[in-house]
Computed example of a mutant assay.
Amino acid sequence: MARVGGRNAAFAWFVGIVSAAIIVTLLVLAIPMFPAASQWLAQIGRTSDGSDGAGAPSPGASSASDAASSPQGCRDLYNDAAWAVLRQTDGAVVTASTDPPVSTAKDVVAALQPAVVLTCRWTSDAGEISTTVATVPTDAGAIAAASLPAKGFTCADDDGRVRCERTDGDLVESIEAGGGRWLSTSQQAWHPSRYAEGVADAVWPAEG
């Protein structure tokens, strides 16, 4: 019986050593996962208290708030009557993009660096129209008012923002800036009634 007990003890020692080796190996393999696990647990904690979940904006969301509140599609820029007039013009096609503003004042546009939210380009048998909505620094209006007259624009204050216009034959341009928003339109040969005023109403909706 003593020899049997000895054999059992030796076997138990062997099993213990193998088990310990397995545990050490598993711990070594698991070490690279500790940072990922910690990050996952932290994310769960942020979501559960609402600081970084659906109930509150993430750190990058606030910087995009102006863009999010601007018109997000070409249809958003026009009331029903204006949209109908544009769409019913012979050969009318509208294309949405984030292309840079179309303007003869290229150096002023480059200096202000508008972050484009939406550009709507209309083509038709009557001509072309390009309208761009963007975000800009809050002092962009003052910079535009100081710079654009040298480019042939006439500028004036318009309901808390700066509005600059230029006409050269069939080309009519307008640039407006205020409250961190930018709106520019280039109308080549095609001049729907109150076009620039209408899109401005969509970008800067009346309060109240």
Score class of each variant (00 low, 15 high):
Gly55Tyr: 01
Asp52Glu: 14
Arg194Ala: 14
Thr98Cys: 01
Ser19Phe: 13
Leu27Pro: 07
Thr123Trp: 00
Gln188Phe: 15
Ala110Asn: 10
Ala64Asp: 06
Glu207Gly: 11
Ala82Tyr: 05
Asp159Trp: 06
Gly179Asn: 07
Ala202Gln: 09
Pro114Glu: 05
Leu148Asp: 08
Arg3Val: 14
Glu176Tyr: 00
Glu173His: 11
Gly16Trp: 02
Ala140Asp: 06
Arg181Lys: 15
Gly180Thr: 00
Gly178Ser: 04
Ser186Arg: 13
Leu183His: 06
Thr95Tyr: 00
Ile44Gly: 11
Ala150Arg: 10
Thr167His: 10
Ala42Asp: 05
Val28Trp: 03
Gly180Ile: 00
Ala177Ser: 11
Arg166Gly: 05
Val136Pro: 08
His191Cys: 06
Gln187Thr: 07
Trp40Tyr: 11
Pro101Phe: 00
Ser19Arg: 13
Ala81Val: 15
Gln39Gly: 07
Gln113Ile: 05
Trp13Ala: 14
Gln188Asn: 14
Val136Glu: 08
Ile17Thr: 12
Ala81Ile: 15
Gly180Ser: 03
Pro205Leu: 08
Arg7His: 13
Lys151Asp: 14
Leu148Phe: 08
Gly5Pro: 12
Val172Gly: 01
Thr132Asp: 08
Ala56Phe: 11
Ala92His: 05
Thr138Gly: 07
Ala21Asp: 01
Ser48Tyr: 06
Pro71Arg: 02
Glu128Leu: 04
Leu112His: 07
Val15Met: 11
Asp107Val: 00
Ser38Gln: 09
Ala96Gln: 10
Gly60Met: 10
Ala12Asp: 10
Arg161Phe: 03
Ala56Pro: 06
Asp49Trp: 08
Glu207His: 13
Lys106Leu: 03
Leu26Phe: 11
Ser174Lys: 00
Ala81Ser: 06
Arg166Asp: 02
Pro137Asn: 10
Thr47Ala: 13
Val203Trp: 00
Ser51Met: 04
Asp159Tyr: 06
Cys164Thr: 09
Pro59Arg: 08
Ala177Arg: 03
Gly160Thr: 08
Ser69Asn: 10
Cys120Met: 06
Glu173Asp: 02
Thr131Arg: 10
Tyr78Asp: 06
Asp90Tyr: 01
Ala177Asp: 11
Ala177Val: 13
Ser48Pro: 03
Pro71Ser: 08
Pro57Met: 05
Phe11Asn: 14
Glu173Tyr: 09
Met33Leu: 13
Val117Asn: 13
Ala64Tyr: 06
Ser63Ile: 07
Asn8Val: 12
Glu176Trp: 01
Ser70Pro: 00
Val117His: 02
Arg3Gln: 15
Cys120Asp: 12
Trp40Asp: 06
Ile17Leu: 15
Asp49Leu: 10
Ala81Gly: 07
Ile23His: 09
Ile17Pro: 01
Ser38Thr: 07
Pro59Gly: 07
Ile129Met: 04
Val136Met: 04
